[in-house]
Design a protein around this nucleic acid. Structure first.
Lengths: 186, 186
DNA sequence: CTACCCATGTAACTGGTTACATGATTAC
DNA sequence: GTAATCATGTAACCAGTTACATGGGTAG
């Protein structure tokens, strides 16, 4: 039940429609999960059926109406149960790393391009996450915010996302450079 | 077809039996993929059926016999095709980050413990990856190895794994500290 | 009038996890 | 003898992806 709890968590701090959630999850919900719109719509249906969230119709004049969802007390309880259970070990799956692993037996050029693209994506995310951080923090400095701020959860996950994307950007960049240099000298 | 290529990549540099592969993938194959033994056995069967790997019986006296696999030319070709195709965008899924996201509405204590456990796991992996790096590098220094060393692929992915685990360790540790401090002051 | 964004779904398929099953050998 | 490690699988289930389907509104 991975998505289930990720959706509950996302709905905790704000009402969302399926469509809005899909956008948030596309970016990566400040990077703790990802999911396709189809998955979200069916998960929302199930969550509402199970009474963990409740939906409310919002009439819009300029565009199609939508249903937005909030977490119910039962939903919060479910999250609490989830939080005390052991977390799944963090496991990683990445196409691009697989390609690097065998780069010695391949034409490196197309993979180098992919590394550079990934570095660019990481930079874009870093900019976005930086904005989110500043918005969450308001006019407090980080030290103070970490001690007394509201919304500490989203702030901490966003900080994690930033650290992660920095590694992605830097590793992709230097790996691309290493491979280009070897290409030159071979 | 994620696992398919990960297995091919793993078999590229060394022969493995299903059991040995399972161990490697359990650790995380220097962290580019993860898979259960059952998945690996069935993937090996399929790969052999499709002619991308070939198996060879190894008779052992002290323990049960085993079949070890190597990549065929067709398998290498498959990897080459895979390498030029676009990579799936890097997406992340982590239970523990979901819990942190909503930590403001939960009892933080059990989550803090999980953060500390994760930091410890990351430290253990860092030690392991450090050993692997030194073994791959031999007596060359890193700069020289990156320019001219053999086995550059595994070295680069391992470097990536180290950067990643450092972030996991440091973020988990400081996040646990932040949460403990807030607990004290609230 | 075309293309794109908002908005919501169903259906079929593939990939991944969990549970179950078997059997030999080695170390305590 | 009992537990741990080596070794290999099957079967059932669940999660995630891809393809398909629909329809209103807005910007160029």
């Amino acid at each position: 039940m991975g998505l289930r709890h990720a959706v509950l968590a996302a709905l905790c701090d704000e009402e969302y429609s399926g469509y809005q959630l899909a956008k948030a999850f596309d970016v990566g919900v400040a990077n703790f999960w990802s999911a396709s719109p189809q998955q979200l719509y069916s998960e929302l249906t199930r969550l509402e059926r199970d009474g963990l969230i409740s939906g409310r119709e919002v009439v819009q004049l300029d565009r199609p109406n939508k249903r937005v969802f909030t977490v119910t007390p039962a939903g919060l309880e479910e999250l609490a149960k989830f939080a005390v259970a052991d977390s799944k070990p963090l496991s990683f799956r990445d196409d691009l790393l697989v390609k690097i692993q065998v780069i010695g037996r391949l034409d490196p050029e197309p993979v180098i391009v992919q590394l550079e693209e990934r570095a660019a994506e990481a930079s874009a995310k870093l900019e976005l996450f930086g904005q989110i951080l500043r918005r969450l923090r308001g006019d407090l400095d980080e030290r103070t915010f970490l001690r007394r701020g509201e919304q500490i959860g989203p702030y901490l996950t966003c900080l994690g996302g930033i650290r992660f994307q920095e590694v992605v950007r830097d590793w992709s960049t230097t790996t691309a450079e290493v491979l280009r240099q070897r290409r030159g000298t071979l």
